[in-house]
Every structure is written in C-alpha cells, then in structure tokens.
Design a protein around this nucleic acid. Structure first.
Lengths: 211, 211
DNA sequence: GAGTAAGTATGCAGGGGCTGCACTTATAGC
DNA sequence: GCTATAAGTGCAGCCCCTGCATACTTACTC
C-alpha cells in the first residue's frame, strides 16, 4: 500500500489493466454479436479482435452468454440493497419504483451497451429465453420483499404470483416494443408506463390481501 | 395403404419400430439422468445403453435437453385445444382447471416418467431454469385466452401479468415441495391446492377488470 | 535496483454437444 | 424379387468450455 492516497484508493496498474481488458471484451463482443449475430460470433473471433487469447476470455467470463448478461448480478445486487434499505412505510413496490426511476438516468456508455444488448437478445430465441430466466433472480428478490409486505408465511404463493406478474409486465413492455427502446422515449414517458403497471399490481395486491 | 383396416390404422412396422426406439431412448435417458445426474450422463452413454448410434439420438431429438422435455410440446398442444374448444361461458381459468383435472389421472407409465423428470430437473440448476423457460409457451397460451376473457387489446399487459402469476403459482407449488410429488398426494388434494390458486387468481383478475 | 511472491495471460490437449454428408441397412409398395 | 424411400450409422469437424502446465507482469521487500 502506498501512502498519500485520497479517500478512494486508485487501484493499481494490474487492477486497472484487468478492468480495461474486461471492458474491451464486453465492448467487442457486443459489437460483433450485434453486427453478425450471437450464434454466428465465436469466442475465437472475439478473442481475435480483442487481442487476447480465447483462453483468457474464459478467465473473465464463465460462458459466452455471460459476456452478454454480465451486468445482471450487479443490478440485482443494487436492487437487493434498495429493498433492504427501504424506509419503514415504503412497500416493495415503492422501492422498486424508486429503483427504476434511479436507473433511468442515461449514462451514455451504459445506455449504449444496454441498447445493443436488447437488440442482440431480441434476435435470438435462446437468448430471449435465457434472458428471461435470468430475471428469475429479480423475481425471487421481489417475492421475498412482497412477502414481508403481505405478512406472508413461507409457503404462501401470493408473493410469488405478484412478483411473477411484475416481471412479466416489465418483460412485456420491453419485449413487445423493440421498436421503442427506453432511451428513445423520455424518462417521463417510461415512468408513466411503469406507474401504470404499478397501479395494476397494487390493485391485484389488494385483492390478495386477506391477512 | 392396405385394405381392411379398422377406423384406426395400425402403423406399419417401420413406424412402430421408430416409436419404440424413441421410447427406449427416453426411458434410458431418464434412468441414467436420475441415477448419475444430467450433466454426468453423456449422449454416448445413452446411445450405448439404448443400443443405437449417438448420431441416431440426434435424429430423434434436437438436443440432449429435449430428451428430457420432449412431452412439453404435446401437452401444450392439448392445452391449446382445450382453450380453443371451451364452451361459451367458460373462462380460460375454468378451461385450465378442467385441463389439470383431466391430467391428474395417474397413467402409470407417464406418471413414473414425470416423477423421474421432476427429480432430475430439481437436481440441476440449468435444467430448473430452462424448464421454467419452457413454461413460457404455456404462459403465452394462457395470456392469449385471458386476453379474450378480458376483452383486452393487443397492447394490454394485464393478460400477461395474470398468466405469469398463474405459471408462477404452479411453479411454486411444484418446485417448492419436492418432497411431495403429486402422485404421492391424492388427486383430490392436488385439486384443492389448485382451486386455492384459482381463487387468488380470480380475485386478482377481478381487480384488473376495468373494461 | 535485484529478487521473490503473487497474479495474469497463454498454449495445448481434450471432453462433450451438435451438425453435415456420404453410405449402409431395413421397410414398403409394386 | 425389385426398387423407392426412409432409418440408422460412421466420420470429420465446429464450437463451447475445462484442467493443467508454462510464460509473463506486476507488486512488494530488502
């Protein structure tokens, strides 16, 4: 450890290089996937363009698909945190709404990648399926939080139903309107749609609230 | 075409052999998967025990996973038919209930395979995920039928939400109680659970019915 | 600044899923 | 029987992914 570093320790050269390599791989993979299709792009090609060995790619990502979906765990962790830290009166749905609102700030780089990702996934059946499967983590998270809201026991299926409906609603919004990615519409519009969904869900939740 | 056949043409030797081979492959694959795990069982081993060439297996099934989930399309088709043919007053939920009730007759062979399948899928993360992904077809089917019930337009997300909740509910019942496979409990018990779910869903549906 | 420890990149060999193609074998209809 | 058609097979090969041994880099210590 060097002395004189500020509150944030700037990571060493090694760490920075690693981060850079990782980002390069992602960037190039997304570009190639978008350009010529996911299945049609091989690990070897990505490695070639990224100027690393194919073996190295697997040191960074457990699988080809994980290059594409690498952000999921991080986003999920953020959501988990928001749910954990929500104030006393706030429901899980409230927390989710805030989370989404907070995620709509279009960080240019992130947004660009996200748009690419969407296009790539849209163009491949398997990816669509697996992409949805990855939402299972979010669903689980929401189900747990909703269970708390509903004072539901562990065997109660209501939280899962609500969480599933929720995920389905957002999937529907995303999948079914590929012509209108969220960055093209304004955040306000996006929030309006989301509030719509929330309204429905709250209605459904009320109907299920018999505790 | 031979003359003198009854209403049902008994398929020729070729067709019967084919069917037999197909069933043998499924049977042996399920046994091996259950015995030593899905990932640990190779196509070569299945082929070996089934006394066919590995290449032949791929003539019958597009992928290893499809050996396991081979019934899904057929069941889905049956559900689609039930939904199509439901009488005027019956809702999609009613039709689904009937469909499930009709499916609970424990055909010994079918039930045995189904139990095996459940165990196999339960023991493998990827299979659980993909198994659920295969439910997307059912979800879609139900969503379409529910959309009719709700007089919902094409962009309406309510039907999807309900369908997703529905599928989630049944998944929850199946996944979360691996100790109690459906054949062990009586059909009456199973139907009681299902009616429970149906009650919730009808409640949720009512809340969404603002047409 | 040389030397060592730890971390990273790479090459190689190989397993396993899956496919296209050519070829043999078995059934069907004449 | 004899031929058209379909099923089964063997082979070569692509691709994802893994374990392992090895070269290379950065980091730390003296």
């Amino acid at each position: 450890m060097e002395a004189g570093n500020a509150t944030e320790v700037r990571p060493g050269l090694r760490e920075r290089k690693k981060q850079k390599t990782r980002e390069t791989i992602i960037e190039i993979a997304l570009e190639l996937f978008a350009e010529r299709g996911y299945e049609e792009t091989t690990i070897a090609e990505i490695a070639d363009v990224a100027e690393v060995s194919p073996r190295t790619i697997f040191a960074y990502f457990p699988s080809k698909e994980d290059i594409l979906f690498c952000d999921t765990p991080e986003i999920q962790e953020r959501l988990a945190q928001v749910l954990r830290d929500r104030p006393e009166g706030a429901t899980a749905l409230d927390a989710l709404r805030d989370f989404i609102a907070g995620s709509l700030s279009p960080d240019s780089n992130e947004a660009r990648n996200e748009a690419l990702r969407r296009r790539i996934v849209a163009g491949n059946e398997t990816l669509r399926r697996n992409g949805r499967a990855r939402l299972a983590g979010f669903e689980q998270l929401m189900a747990e939080a909703i269970a708390v809201d509903l004072h539901a026991g562990p065997g109660d299926i209501r939280p899962r139903m609500v969480a599933a409906a929720l995920v389905a609603a957002f999937s529907a919004i995303q999948d079914h309107d590929p012509a209108a990615p969220p960055e093209s519409s304004s955040p306000e519009q996006a929030m309006a749609v989301i509030d719509d969904v929330m309204g429905f869900l709250r209605g459904g939740l009320e109907a299920l609230r018999h505790d």
